[in-house]
Design a binder for these strands. Structure first.
Lengths: 205, 205, 205, 205
DNA sequence: CATGAATGAGAATTCATTCAT
DNA sequence: GATGAATGAATTCTCATTCAT
């Protein structure tokens, strides 16, 4: 899933400094969009000059790459654990959603970037792993939903792909407004979302 | 809601040509993102040279402006009609959602652009109308949901703002995958979405 | 002194229309500078579209050319008459200055353009006649001043080239503030200028 | 009188380098006119690429701005000293003229630019200080002339505004031909100019 | 590690000019 | 005579990136 080999240049610098700088970069990318973000803006935010960032990273693109791949790696650590747990379909969905909100909590900026940029990035070879992840993601969710329909846990009258998109988007789009440390914990938000997704917002007559 | 008058300069050119070019531009903006789209790319797509676009439009930004303001104007024509119809909360939600999917069908590209760019654009004075629209939008939906809770039509145990975001995002994010002329008509998609949002995807025991 | 041959294209159009358009162009050139003036601005002022000017003129440059050469032709008609009249040095200076203010009155815009642009234009072959005129001009004035010094009419203690520049500039720079139809007639201004140049502004003790 | 603060962007770069580059730019502006000068031409002259200038300056316009405002600041330092010295009208004129030729000597390019461009620049808010300076200038000179007429030092039979323009133009236009390091020192030129302006070029009978 | 100064490849935009209608 | 629509070259400006110090 990670990306191309770094030039010998980079990968110096203490890991903590890298992490810091990547957080800064991610925050700016998320706020302004990757393309609209200048390297200088990131450097300003980090209290250094633009050129100095190149001691730590090969390129602007490799910052983006590292932000996204780090996030996806952690995300799949969580997802894989859930999927391996042998839960029933409903419980799997619940666990995946909860895990997702935890990731949003931990990687809000990365998630926001992912959502804005993934589509056009995944065309580039360097970011093929985004498409791969997307596919693996789809397989996991679609499979769970299908299993749920087969088990009579989910409604059978819904278009399954539409439902998949509905649930997927419903969860991730939350990154666009979520602010860590706000009123609701990720788990609380997950609970409410699950309640809406599973049972709807209407009062059942 | 639309934006400033163009200099006498522009606004020449037959309206049909403008419309054509704006459609082309919107398509490219939606596919690549506004910032990542070069004026030359649009011109290529339109079969002309980059400079020639400036006979029709003041700037790349004013193309974006016209795309978004045209879309929002039409959107609010539809919404205002619904809101003025005196429907009950549930029927209002149904009508708004259906209207939204119709707009996605008609202005897919504009909606996609809106979603990617609105947040950082609305800081600029020229695009303040985006924020205004957002606010009006929020008022309409929140009001309807509250009315619905008061009337016992919607569940009272959910955080109302969370619910608002849930419903709002749930609908509009569809623009990111929707393709006009596909398997489902907007009305069909609206029906399925409403079914999920209102009643949930779980089989009620 | 006039300039390059026109392409067959041009020189159509009634002479009066040309004259009108050239006056318009001259006014704009004078106000904004030649380079800063767009063909469209001229066309706007003339109530037509930019492209339409090309029915009347080959190019923006040829408008400038015609404006300047027309002015210089008329100027030299006047100057040559004065110089051929066989006047004494002081009377010659008086007549040249008066004639100059008449030209400023008649061709204010052209004079202003001449002053701003002549220096760098005269490098181009097309505008060599500007340099030629300048030289002829210098010969006439310098000669008159020298004659005046020799005759004991002008002070001998002044650097003659400095004096030439002083008188020359003193007169022509007036075009930068002169407005035809103002308080003073050209002849009145000439009289005052002559009085200052010849006798100074100090009260002779 | 100087202009707006630069963005943090610029204003880096050692002051000496800025000074150098501004001198280069001023020279080119003076020779070709501001509009006709391309940024690339300046960069060529400075031995760098066009884009590199933007490390030092925000824009072509801000170079112009800095050139003019620096010049005016220094000019007024000199003028204010003269005006504060409590001299009589004739001595004030003499001192102002001498000071002016010194400024022409020091800032020939800036003065030439000022003369070609001031009029249309002063319409722009950024260059309002040009108009302000012009006004202050007029007040100083007109006042001195009036005082001189009242004191019987200057002729009363001349139109005072005409006289003002005469003296003003007579001095500054010299920047268009003056070359520092030439035959005459600024003080020598000032002496000759003053002699002409005050006493005229004619031999008093 | 960081700075200062530059590079160089575009980017948006302008504008004189052309030409079919 | 004029218009509408374009061309294409030039221009200002931006920005990721490099590199000597």
């Amino acid at each position: 899933m990670p990306s191309a080999k770094k030039k010998t240049t980079t990968a110096n610098a203490s890991p903590e400094r890298r992490r810091e700088l990547l957080n800064t970069a991610a925050e700016v990318f998320a706020a302004q969009g990757y393309n609209a973000t200048t390297v200088r803006r990131i450097a300003d935010e980090a209290g250094m000059l633009a050129g100095s960032l190149y001691y730590h990273f090969d390129s602007k693109e490799s910052m983006l790459d590292e932000i996204l791949s780090t996030f996806l790696t952690e995300l799949w650590d969580g997802y894989d654990a859930v999927l391996a747990a042998g839960l029933g379909p409903r419980e799997t969905i619940e666990a995946l959603v909860t895990e997702s909100f935890r990731e949003i909590d931990r990687h809000r900026a990365a998630v926001a970037i992912y959502q804005k940029e993934a589509r056009h990035l995944s065309a580039q070879p360097r970011f093929r792993y985004l498409a791969d992840s997307q596919q693996k993601f789809e397989k996991a969710w679609l499979g769970t939903l299908e299993r749920g329909v087969a088990d009579g846990v989910f409604r059978a009258d819904l278009d399954i792909r539409l439902t998949y998109r509905f649930v997927r988007d419903t969860v991730w789009i939350a990154a666009s407004w979520y602010r860590p440390g706000g009123r609701h914990s990720p788990e609380e938000i997950a609970r409410q979302y699950l309640s809406m997704v599973l049972d709807g917002i209407a009062l059942s007559a």
